[in-house]
């Protein structure tokens, strides 16, 4: 029994040290990426390629999910609001939930599983097949040539995807609330406009999505770069990317929400 207890403590200790180590190394990795980002300005074509694979290829899932989330919000919101006789507030409910929370968070979660996992798998495989080592041997810094363009491509894509998600969601809410159920068209929009503030709600939502984009991308890039160069290593790293970045998104969302909307 005592051995098992000691063993348990040892495991906790090991996990803690490992976790702190990974955080330190990934922070260094992040700073290194920022330092080597000059190439992205000199050769924007590299970033454009990555915006394509991170942003454009995530469009379908973002647009479809946004539409459905908005439609569900419209239905559920209407059910609840009509009990209090304030169906006109449906626009406020849909817009605020999307712009403040669901847009940035759900878009980032989808982004983590669509683009984040792809980034990890791609870099992990490049490492496993010695492409990264080959690049180093050709005197090309892989952080500058491979990592930095992917970082900026994903970080640029994320807020755009989140905005598209929110816009599609509001459109979905409009379809269900106004077109299907018959909430007054004018009230839907005007109530929304009087309640949603540009700086407090929309800008804060954009800031959130940028922070989430950075978090997801750093996790994905680091896990790929750190993956053991085997098939199993890459698959584990891909799983870890999705899990870690999803948890990071939710934790960061709480922190950011507490900071941003405390005063209101």
């Amino acid at each position: 029994m005592p051995e098992r207890v000691i063993g348990g403590f040892r495991k906790i200790g090991h996990r803690t040290i490992d976790g702190v180590w990974r955080m330190g190394v990934s922070t260094r990795f992040f700073l290194l990426t920022l330092m080597h980002s000059g190439i992205c300005l000199r050769r924007p074509q590299l970033v454009i390629r990555e915006i394509f694979s991170a942003g454009v290829l995530s469009l379908i899932i973002i647009i479809v999910s946004g539409l459905f989330v908005g439609m569900v919000l419209g239905l559920q919101g209407y059910e609840t609001l009509q009990t209090y006789g304030s169906e006109e507030a449906l626009g406020i409910l849909v817009a605020l939930s999307l712009v403040r929370e669901l847009g940035p968070v759900v878009a980032a979660l989808l982004f983590a599983s669509r683009a984040g996992s792809a980034i990890t798998a791609e870099i992990g495989l490049m490492k496993a097949t010695e492409q990264i080592a080959a690049m180093e041997m050709m005197a090309v810094d892989p952080i500058a040539r491979v990592v930095a363009p992917r970082f900026w491509g994903a970080v640029i894509s994320m807020p755009l995807l989140a905005a598209l998600f929110s816009a599609m969601g509001i459109f979905g809410g409009y379809l269900v609330g106004v077109v299907m159920i018959g909430v007054d068209d004018g009230a839907f929009w005007s109530q929304m406009q009087s309640a949603v503030d540009f700086r407090e709600d929309i800008l804060n939502g954009v800031i959130k999505s940028v922070v989430f984009g950075v978090a997801v991308t750093v996790v994905a890039l680091f896990e790929g770069y750190d993956a053991p160069p085997t098939a199993e290593g890459v698959s584990r790293a891909t799983t870890r990317t999705v899990v870690t970045s999803s948890l990071a998104i939710l934790a960061l969302d709480f922190v950011l929400t507490a900071l941003m909307f405390r005063g209101v």
Binding site: L160, A163, L164, I170, W189, M192, F198, I202
Partner: peptide, 17 residues
């Protein structure tokens, strides 16, 4: 993609906010 994303932001700012 970039134009659509910026259009969505403008939509949020003008029509929603």
């Amino acid at each position: 993609f970039v134009v659509a994303g910026i259009a969505a932001l403008v939509f949020l700012a003008m029509k929603v906010g």
